[in-house]
Structures are given as C-alpha cells and as structure tokens.
Amino acid sequence: MEKKILRGRAWVFGDDVDTDLIYHNKYLAETDPKKMPQYSFEYYPGKENFAKEVKEGDFIVAGTNFGCGSSREHAVYCLKYAGIPVVLAESFSRIYYRNAINNGYPVLFVNGLSQAIKDGKIKDGDELEVDLEKGEIKDITNGNSFHGDAVADLEMDIMKAGGLIEYLKEKAAGK
C-alpha cells in the first residue's frame, strides 16, 4: 500500500450494490482477472458506460452493504484491475470484504457515506482526496470531508503482503 495521498474522480453508487450489478453472472466463466474490468457495472442503471469511461485512479463511493450477494471474486478483480485504488463505502458485505482483503485490495468503511450520497454531499465526478493511512476523505469539489475506520491487524498484514496467497507464501518462507 502506498502512503501518498490519492486523488481522483468519484463514481457514486447507492446502498446494497449487489455482486450481480458489479459483475454479472454471465461472465463468470472468465478466469483471467485482467479481462474482467470490461464488464464492470454493465447492468447498473445510469452506470452502463462505467467500464468505458473509468480512469485509473478513480474511486468507487457507495452506501451500505456494498458487494452483497455472491462470493465471486470477479467483483473485486473487475475494480482492482480497472485501476481503482480503493472502494469507499459506509459498509461492505462480509464476503466482499474478505475477498477484497484476501486480494490485497483496500476497502474503507466510511461513516455517514450512505446519507451523504442521498443528500448530494458527494456526487459523480467530484474530485476526491483520500488519505488511506488516516482514513480521511476530502471532496475537493464541494469541500465536504468524511472519515473512515482503520483496518484490523490481521487484515492489514494480509493486505500489506498483497493478499492472502502472498501472505501465505511469505509465512512459508519464514518472513
């Protein structure tokens, strides 16, 4: 994980964004993670062009229960390999959270994000500054700021190693 402050555009979603919306069933047979971003959010109303328009460094911003539904890791890969550095949501479904950590992909629990999205305090295309270490998010476009929770120790160790597989390899090598 890099220490510097990240800067990018926000793609804003609502509550209960399910795994079918993030990455649809019909592409599940795809096994190459790098080919997955082209299918991201294909069925999400108003975000059908996400895969075409997303730029490396952009952020996903969502409300509660992001990634509910299936256990598919495609829903993590399709964002990770699109170059999105972190998903910011008020809360994550259990399996999505684990899949993210296990793939060394940062997710941040951000307090009050669900209501802020509903109130229009953070919008599509807003310029954000994210300090992952401190869990601080600043919306440069309108001046609002948000605060996220730190990740627990075991999860942080796995994430720092680059994911569960890397973590196990390091442990096996006695690092």
Partner: peptide, 30 residues
Amino acid sequence: GSDSHTCTYGAFGTFSTGIGRSEMAATWAT
C-alpha cells in the same frame, strides 16, 4: 464452500459459510 449459499447446511446444525476463491485455494493448501 466457495459459494455464498453454503449457509444452507445450518439446517442440520452445521456451521457453514461461503468464502471466496482465493480463500478456498488457501484453505486447500493449509
């Protein structure tokens, strides 16, 4: 189980839960 509906087996008093693919691979190994 590497499927979210693995929780079904609780009907038989099993502690069962769905996990992702990386996690399943790691469990096969360790």
